[in-house]
């Protein structure tokens, strides 16, 4: 349980920094949105990985696509910018989780 929460918090913080690096305004709002985005995707991704499929990359791809849409609508930015942000954020969190092992 502790590990799940830790993973969630680390992911939110990393994604917040990445989003903030590109958006650069109202950090509190960015943090709030980053938390909302990850709270809606990470537990479900976790469930899918633990119970449905072992394919980490496929689940990561699904998360990347969902977060792309959520970033686009929450931050009201163009789709290609949201796509890039979602990719960078998910790529970095995926790499970090691989390196931490």
């Amino acid at each position: 349980m502790r590990q799940q929460f830790l993973l969630l918090i680390v992911t939110i913080i990393i994604e917040f920094f990445i989003l903030w690096l590109f958006i650069r305004k109202n950090p509190l709002r960015i943090f709030f949105y980053a938390a909302l985005i990850n709270l809606s995707t990470l537990p479900i991704a976790n469930y899918l990985y633990q119970n449905i499929s072992n394919n980490f990359l496929l689940i990561e791809l699904a998360v990347f696509l969902i977060e792309w849409i959520l970033i686009m609508v929450l931050f009201e930015i163009k789709y290609y910018r949201a796509l890039l942000l979602s990719f960078i954020a998910n790529f970095i969190t995926a790499v970090i989780s691989l390196l931490l092992r």
């Binding site: 633990q50 072992n54 394919n55 980490f56 990359l57 496929l58 796509l83 995926a94 931490l100 092992r101």
Partner: peptide
């Protein structure tokens, strides 16, 4: 971008994946 996500799945058979 999609390929960057998909290609490593072909070569990652020997890597312990996160959560494993």
């Amino acid at each position: 971008l999609a390929l960057t996500f998909l290609i490593p799945s072909i070569v990652s058979a020997d890597i312990i994946e996160p959560g494993m």
